[in-house]
């Protein structure tokens, strides 16, 4: 290399010896500040290897002098968040649902906590906005099957509906068609009557509805009550309002009477801690239909 050194006669600068079509590369020195920055980076890099975790080994890695770990940092951050929440969580633990709802500070905390717990655990069936779907109740409205006050909601979340928990909310509507309790014509008549309760039946079917009323009184009123308004204790839906869990068309009502419906909700006690369930109850109650 040393032998190849040549000096460009125009600029008086040494060249690198590289030449392309007669154009030779000058070997100007690097700017000083650049050079020093480069050296500083080298020193920094070596120090980094020593101080921080850097090198992969066969089954682990070098841990570095200060023992930094992003996993530990995350754990610490989570721990700090828990600590920050703990004061509220303790108070929520000790308070009744009504007390929480009455205390703006606790209410705000519970709504935020309940909201995120809902997104993680409940939104799969009830939807992110809790608007539900066919067969999955809309929690925003004021129609409840098992009751919509704080205690009832809390109970439902705790033990579920037709879940495997001993204290689950449980009922069973007969499958009037499948089990041949009623004939097709009778089911059709009852359906017409049920639809007429919420004024959604057709005037042409008034005669059928009148026939269905007798069958309703005989077969259905034990749970759905004489007036069709249902009962929270029995989990019997109100048939007179504008809200239909499985749809308000005649085919859907006939299907419900023929084959029965039995939606299922898991019990959350044991899966979620008590404070979380409390917050969930508060959140669901706040969605707009709480009683």
């Amino acid at each position: 290399m040393a032998d190849n050194k040549e000096v460009d006669h125009v600029s008086g600068v040494e060249t690198t010896g590289h030449e392309w079509d007669g154009i030779r590369e000058l070997n100007n020195p690097l700017p000083r500040w650049w050079l020093w920055t480069f050296y500083a980076c080298c020193i920094w890099a070596v120090a980094y290897w020593v101080v921080m975790p850097a090198w992969p080994l066969i089954s682990s890695h070098t841990t570095g002098m200060i023992g930094y770990s992003s996993r530990a940092q995350l754990a610490k951050t989570v721990e700090q968040a828990r600590e920050a929440q703990s004061a509220y969580l303790t108070r929520i633990d000790a308070a009744s649902l009504e007390e929480i709802a009455g205390d703006q500070e606790l209410l705000d905390f519970a709504l935020a906590g309940g909201g995120s717990a809902f997104a993680v655990n409940c939104s799969q069936c009830h939807g992110r906005g809790a608007a539900g779907y066919v067969g999955y109740p809309n929690l925003n409205d004021d129609d409840w099957i098992w009751g919509g006050d704080l205690a009832a909601i809390d109970q439902t979340i705790h033990f579920g509906i037709r879940s495997d928990h001993d204290e689950t909310r449980l009922n069973e509507m007969p499958a009037y068609g499948r089990d041949e309790i009623l004939t097709r014509e009778e089911i059709d008549d009852v359906a017409e009557y049920v639809l007429s309760l919420s004024a959604s039946g057709s005037a042409a079917a008034a005669a059928a509805a009148a026939r269905g009323q007798e069958i309703f009184a005989e077969q259905c009123s034990a749970c759905h009550m004489e007036d069709g308004k249902g009962d929270y204790e029995l989990g019997a839906p109100n048939l007179t309002d504008a809200i239909w869990l499985y749809g308000g068309e005649k085919t859907a009502v006939v299907e419900s009477i023929t084959n029965s419906r039995a939606g299922m909700m898991p019990a959350w006690t044991g899966r979620l801690d008590e404070t979380t369930i409390k917050q969930l109850a508060i959140y669901v109650h706040s969605l707009g239909g709480g009683e």
């Binding site: 939807g127 809790a130 608007a131 925003n140 409205d141 707009g288 239909g289």
Partner: peptide
Amino acid sequence: RNPLFVTLSDGSIRNG
């Protein structure tokens, strides 16, 4: 925006 509106028992419509 989720839900856009809610139908209540008496058929009235609610927005949040």
